[in-house]
Design a protein around this nucleic acid. Structure first.
Length: 473
RNA sequence: GUCAGAAUGGCAGAGUGGUUAUGCUUCCGGCUGCAACCCGGAAUUAUGUGAGUUCAAUUCUCACUUCUGACUCCA
């Protein structure tokens, strides 16, 4: 039984989609104005893990992730870069997708853009004005918070006691209440000059930030969706405002389950430009490999802070390699096994269903990937112990099949067993085998070094030499 | 300042009102021609501090300390 922590209630709840067997998920995607950093990708990866887990549990999942391609920052920075808004955001949208591929993140069902949904936003704004929940002032449309009594239910903020941000935008000067937020912003002369504006009943406008998500989520799924995912920093104001917009307009619950991922910090500190500790994904993927980064992120529960550091990454890498080695060894054994059966071997099979259950239960416990990894390790050890002695094909196949099942659920080891050994290396290995047969250890060791210098490692096993690509470290 | 979350060995990280898992790291042993891989064993002052509830607290409660975050763009 799947249980998921819901920010709305601050408890784990039994997960039940509106439509049996199908799950609708909306996730807040990137604002495409610069290279996303590894913290952004932690959240995207968490979303991917949730999708994969739900699929592993048998649900049909539809994920929609928006791309914010018009807002203050994209407008500002595209100008600075001397590019049109579209060229500028296209560039960083491409970077965003490249990063997803680096981490083997599955594509969502759709990636709607804010700029493609302005009509819907105007429509929603009109509806909210009709209901008295929004008003026009100075060509902008604002949401009237006082008209929505539930405001604050997600963030649980006490609005009487918190300090209103010191920096109040000039264009917010006109609002009825300083906490009211913009749905649509009146275009500035500069924006109009650059062609960044949309016609509306209130004149030329461009979208505010929060309204796009309400529109795209409801366009995709109707008034109520099962799950909405984002980083913890979005709880307020972004998601609070989404609730106000959506539920204000429809009168129906917007999201059943709010899921928020904790932040990634670096050596105990927030990643920030001023501290100079911002890492982009390509930087660390180049260093450790995409799957290691993926594994590293999955080794910490999504609701816990992940404290990134070099030592942490190395640790994750060792853990990852250990699990990978087992799969390598399993596949090697499978290739070389003879079909002789030892009835006693079948004992090992009995432990597999139990591991499968434990693995599933770990994931069902609020997507507890660290716990699931522990079960994965148990399977690894079971497998290694078996490989010490046993070679029953049926047993090997069943272990392998479960191993792949776990790997796929995590989205790792997709390439294991698929790498080609270069001709040159293969012939050296043969040469070395010949030397070993003659017990010419000196020569055999020299050849092993040669192979190593080509970037490959040879291991001697009962079934003969096993060659694999060396991990650079 | 208000609010929220967190604190477990050298590192990472789970669970649990009743000998703290698991992995990495380190050491020893086995396997091996030697390695590598793997297996077995061991180690390390481990549950932030102080109270309370309890027969029993790492787990529940309270306070404190520290960290992180939200309140302003932010995954």
């Amino acid at each position: 039984m799947l249980q998921v922590y819901n920010t709305l209630t601050r408890t784990k709840e039994i997960f039940k989609p509106v439509k049996e067997g199908e799950v609708s998920i909306y996730a807040c995607g990137p604002t495409v104005y610069n290279m996303p950093h590894i913290g952004n990708y932690r959240t995207f990866l968490m979303t991917d893990n949730i999708v994969r887990t739900l699929e592993y549990l048998g649900y049909k999942v539809k994920l929609v992730m928006n791309i914010t391609d018009i807002d203050d920052k994209t407008i500002r920075d595209s100008k600075e870069a001397g590019m049109s808004l579209k060229d500028f955001t296209d560039k960083y949208t491409a970077e965003f997708f490249k990063g997803l591929d680096m981490l083997n993140i599955k594509r969502a069902s759709a990636y709607p853009r804010a700029t493609e949904n302005v009509d819907g936003m105007i429509e929603l704004a009109r509806k909210l004005i009709e209901k008295g929940l929004a008003y026009e002032k100075g060509g902008s449309v604002y949401y009237r918070i006082s008209g929505f009594p539930d405001y604050g239910k997600l963030s649980k903020l006490d609005f009487d006691n918190i300090i209103i941000g010191a920096s109040v935008d000039v264009d917010e000067y006109d609002k009825d209440n300083p906490r009211d937020f913009a749905l649509l912003k009146a275009s500035t002369p500069e924006e109009i000059e650059r062609g960044i504006y949309y016609e509306s009943p209130w004149g030329k406008i461009r979208p505010g930030w929060h309204i796009e998500c309400s529109v795209m989520a409801m366009n995709s799924f109707g008034p109520t969706l099962d799950m909405h995912i984002g980083g913890v920093d979005l709880i307020f104001p972004h998601h609070e405002n989404e609730i106000a917009q959506s539920e204000g307009a429809t009168g129906k619950p917007f999201v059943c389950n709010w899921v928020h991922g904790e932040h990634l910090i670096v050596e105990g500190e927030k990643m920030s430009k001023s501290r100079g500790n911002v890492f982009t994904l390509p930087e660390i993927v180049e260093k450790y490999g995409g799957e290691v980064v993926r594994f590293m992120f999955l080794s910490v529960h999504y609701r816990k802070k992940l404290d990134y550091s070099g030592a942490f990454a190395e640790n994750a890498k060792n853990n990852y390699l250990k699990l990978k080695e087992t799969l390598d060894n399993l596949e090697f054994a499978l290739k070389n096994v003879e079909d002789e059966s030892n009835p006693g071997d079948l004992e090992t099979l009995k432990s597999l269903p139990e591991l499968e259950i434990q693995f599933r239960e770990a994931l069902e416990d609020d997507f507890n990937t660290p716990k699931a990894i522990t079960i994965f390790r148990e399977l690894s050890r079971t497998s290694n112990v078996y490989l010490e002695t046993g070679r029953n094909r049926q047993v090997l196949e069943q272990i392998h099949s479960l191993y792949k099942q776990f790997s796929d659920a995590f989205g790792i080891f997709a390439q294991v067993g698929k790498e080609e050994i270069p001709e040159e290396v293969a012939s050296l290995v043969e040469e070395r085998e010949a030397a070993r047969k003659k017990k010419d250890w000196a020569n055999s060791d020299v050849i092993r070094e040669n192979i190593k210098s080509l970037g490959y490692i040879v291991q001697d096993t009962k079934e003969g030499p096993k060659v694999k690509k060396a991990e650079e470290s």
